[in-house]
Design a protein around this nucleic acid. Structure first.
Length: 574
RNA sequence: GCGCCCAUAGCUCAGUCGGAUAGAGCAUCAGAUUCCUAAUCUGGGGGCCACAGGUUCGAAUCCUGUUGGGCGCACCA
């Protein structure tokens, strides 16, 4: 129960009274009524637009409704003042008792403060990262990984059961390439001269240990064997090694998936065939000829009959093949089966995709909607590219030489917390720059340190106070003053923010909120420069000091809980 | 040519289900350290919310069109 939900109830009761009195029709739609803190704190503590939203249906002047509502709201014990403003806003000021109770609530619930009080009963599957198992994670994968992970954490905190899933594309042509690349390193480990690595194979050094391991395990058994003897075996071996490497990279970011789903396993289990049959039975797949691609000229293009999904029915610009002419499944075909599988164990699916996959969103949404008869809530969050800079200059990455910037390199250089926080300081669908030079700087340019510093500042103050025999205490909270209540009010917004971030699926909101809360703390702190009586530690008034420190401890708790949602450490000292 | 995303201060970006005088950081200018961590704070200047219509009590926010930018458009993944 947050302050805002409490007041939603109060307003419901007040509206019921107005209906009884005949001032409002009984069937009014309350869905647009909001209860929120006014943007400008001078307007009060809590505000509702009820009168304005309901005026049309009631055929009454909004101020008239506001007047009647105000009379009801004035009777609530915790409300000290009701004011009608502007076109019909109702602003209320609350007794400080409300904020003292909120502090006690924070203290009581601790790490769970802000967590939804009741479960939604929904299971949400968040699929993220899902990079091809052909090499280490590089920076291009990083943002989606962080956004997906933070989103999963937030959704869980907001009362949902969450499955964190990784889809392993271990069935397409790219893993055959991996197998051949690993084979080459295997020959190399056996002492053969492999010369230059040919174009089209993966040249990266990370396959050298894979080759060594294969050489140790199998000796020269496959050294002169035809490809058919080793391709599948080496593919499985190499994919396993790659996934171990990817899991290790992810753990550097603090990311741990619950489920690793294999595309190859889907095919073995015949899931794609089942999906195809279902789609054919429902006339969503038919045998047809692809149109010639537009906007691009392809030399060896020729018409072929393929099983096509009727994605044009759902707004796509052409029907899409689910199988290739060689009989293998296309990525899209397998994806249909995969999403159907996911929908069987979740009420909602969220995919975190790179923006370069934007073109395929429509068709997969259409397909999932058809296959689940619209019962599964399916959302795809597109994450825009990150441009790597160093001192304003783009960092060069060459795929050809295999010398891309790996995630591990970046974390080694700037640390997990900086990477995670920075990736969450922008809406996912906005492009962003990531500048090494700025991001390592422990300063105002960097919101991570700003927020962590606020937390550390409180921790160190409490440590210092304990040295002086002042112990944070809730015994005399009534000694707190306006500036301190203002901080508590800001902290009380945390649950609303969590709700909003979960609902809109926008983790960046937490980052901005924490920045605001940290700013309020720093600002309050500096009051003590000019006005020593505003400091937290007051040797001459231990009761007041104890109350202030208790308040500060609750601010720290909220900062900590917010940082945890982002996967960032709440430092106790800096 | 088509689809998706975006357009807010000099720069990078927030902006709650449509709500009150559109905010923050950087940059810039002027200040604050005998003081619980200055990794901080206070104040000033800086806006046609791309443009034009529409919806309504009210639009940066919703709808339509225009302009500008990014991404994508193979049976690849």
């Amino acid at each position: 129960m947050t302050i805002f939900t409490t007041f939603a109830d109060h307003i419901d009761v007040a509206l019921n009274t107005l209906i009884d009195e005949g001032l409002l029709p009984s069937d009014i739609d309350r869905s647009n009524v909001t209860i929120e803190p006014p943007r400008d704190a001078s307007h009060g503590d809590i505000s509702t637009n009820a009168a304005m939203v309901l005026s049309k249906a009631a055929k009454k002047n909004p101020r008239e409704i506001a007047q009647a509502l105000a009379v009801q709201l004035e009777q609530i014990a915790s409300v000290t003042e009701v004011e009608i403003a502007g076109p019909g806003f109702i602003n209320m000021r609350l007794d400080n008792m409300v904020w003292r109770d909120e502090m006690l609530e924070i203290a009581k619930r601790g790490d769970d403060y802000g967590r939804a009080p009741t479960k939604t009963g929904k299971t949400i599957n968040v699929e993220y990262v899902s990079t091809n198992p052909t090499g280490p994670l590089h920076m291009g994968h990083c943002r989606g990984a962080v956004v997906g992970d933070a989103l999963a954490t937030i959704l869980e905190f907001a009362g949902n059961d969450v499955i964190k899933e990784y889809y392993i594309n271990d069935a397409g042509g790219q893993v055959d390439t991996l197998s051949r690349s690993a084979y080459l390193r295997y020959l190399e480990a056996l002492g053969r001269d492999i010369g230059e690595i040919e174009d089209g194979l993966y040249p990266g050094d990370y396959l050298i240990p894979v080759g060594k391991r294969l050489a140790e395990k199998y000796g020269d058994k496959y050294a002169d064997a035809p490809e058919g003897d080793w391709l599948v075996l080496f593919r499985e071996e190499a994919v396993d090694d790659m996934m171990d490497m990817i899991r290790a990279d992810l753990s550097l970011l603090g990311i741990k998936h619950d489920v690793f789903a294999s595309e190859a396993a889907l095919h073995v289990e015949g899931k794609a065939d089942i999906a195809e049959k279902w789609l054919r039975d429902n006339d969503l797949v038919y045998d047809g000829v692809l149109e010639k691609p537009k906007g691009k000229t392809i030399d060896d293009w020729e018409p072929v009959t393929l099983p096509l999904f009727r994605s044009t029915q759902f707004g796509d610009d052409q029907d899409r093949p689910i199988k290739k002419s060689n009989g293998q499944w296309t990525y899209f075909g397998a994806d249909l089966a995969y999403h159907y599988q996911k929908s069987e164990s979740a009420d909602a699916l969220i995919n975190i995709w790179g923006a370069d996959h934007a073109g395929t969103v429509k068709r997969i949404k259409a397909a999932v909607s058809a296959m689940t008869q619209g019962k599964t809530d399916f959302d795809i969050k597109l994450v825009q590219m990150v441009r790597l800079l160093r001192g304003g200059e783009p960092v060069k990455m060459s795929k050809r030489s295999g010398s891309f910037i790996t995630l591990k390199d970046v974390i080694d250089e700037v640390g997990k917390d900086v990477v995670r926080f920075t990736m969450l300081t922008r809406k996912a669908d906005a492009q962003m720059d990531f500048d090494f030079a700025k991001v390592v700087e422990a300063s105002k340019d960097n919101p991570v340190f700003y927020v962590q510093y606020a937390h550390a500042r409180i921790c160190s103050t409490i440590r210092k106070a304990l040295d002086e025999d002042i112990v944070p205490s809730d015994k005399k909270l009534e000694l707190l003053e306006d500036e301190e209540y203002a901080l508590v009010k800001e902290a009380s917004n945390f649950s609303r923010l969590v709700e909003a971030a979960a609902k809109t699926r926008e983790p960046h909101r937490i980052a901005f909120y924490l920045n605001d809360l940290a700013s309020a703390l720093h600002s309050h702190w500096n009051l003590g420069n000019d006005r020593p009586e505003k400091r937290f530690i007051l040797a001459q008034d231990k009761d007041k000091s104890a109350a202030r420190l208790f308040m500060a401890a609750q601010i720290a708790q909220v900062l900590k809980n917010g940082l945890k949602l982002m996967g960032v450490e709440a430092a106790e000292a800096m």
